[in-house]
Computed example of a mutant assay.
Amino acid sequence: FFVGLFVLVAGLIETGVIATLAEKATDLTGGDVAATSMLILWMSAIASAFIDNIPFVATMIPMIQDMGSLGISNLEPIWWSLALGACLGGNGSLIGASANLIVAGMAAKEGYPIKFAQFLKLGFPMMLLSIVLASAYVYLRYLM
């Protein structure tokens, strides 16, 4: 799995896909560290709710490194935004984190099945709340 993941990421780097994404994100935010941090935080949270966060983070690491070469000098809040978004975003859906699937499997085994929509109704609003709090934290800690 990990070998394939890193081969895929290397292919995205070599073909210029990652550099293009970094350039587009930097253009979208005007290179502003605060705006870029919030973009990465929210994008990684939403994406991590529906895809596993490990491949997403592995793809985002070179993208953030490329943002540094595009003129964004302070990458620290962007790194924290990626970490918080990817981690907390996994709480948004049943498939967002491996732990969610394990607990759902254990619950089903005990006669308490947890359906995707049922988890989403509770998990997604809680994930949004945690990302709002993470946004406030990143802003107050790194951007003020």
Rank of each mutant, 00 (worst) to 15 (best):
I72N: 01
I72R: 10
A35F: 13
S44D: 01
S69Y: 08
I46Q: 02
D52H: 08
V57L: 02
A49W: 07
I51L: 08
M67S: 06
M43P: 09
P77Y: 03
I40K: 07
F50Y: 12
T36S: 07
I54F: 01
A35I: 10
T36M: 12
A45F: 00
N53C: 01
I46W: 03
A34W: 14
A47R: 03
M67Q: 01
E76A: 11
I51W: 00
W79N: 10
I72C: 03
V33K: 01
S44E: 00
I51T: 03
D32T: 13
G71H: 13
V57C: 02
T36N: 01
G71L: 13
N53G: 08
I40W: 07
D66G: 02
G31N: 02
M60N: 01
M67F: 05
V33I: 06
A34R: 14
T59K: 04
Q65K: 15
A45L: 04
A49M: 05
D52T: 03
A47H: 09
D32C: 03
W79K: 05
F56P: 05
F56C: 05
M38K: 05
M67K: 00
P62F: 08
V57T: 13
P77H: 10
G30H: 05
T29Y: 06
Q65I: 14
D32Q: 02
W42V: 12
A58M: 04
P62K: 09
A34D: 08
S37F: 14
M38F: 11
I78K: 08
S37K: 13
I54A: 05
L39F: 09
V33T: 13
S69P: 05
T59C: 10
T36W: 02
G71I: 15
P62C: 06
F56Y: 15
Q65D: 12
I46H: 00
N74I: 13
G71P: 14
I54M: 09
M43Y: 11
A35H: 12
I61T: 11
G31F: 07
S44G: 06
S48T: 12
I46M: 05
I64D: 10
G31T: 10
T59V: 10
A58H: 06
I61Q: 04
M38Q: 13
M67L: 08
A35P: 06
T59S: 11
I72T: 09
W42M: 07
G30I: 11
G30E: 08
G68E: 00
D32P: 01
I61C: 05
L75E: 04
M60A: 14
M67H: 01
D32H: 00
S69M: 12
L39E: 02
P77V: 11
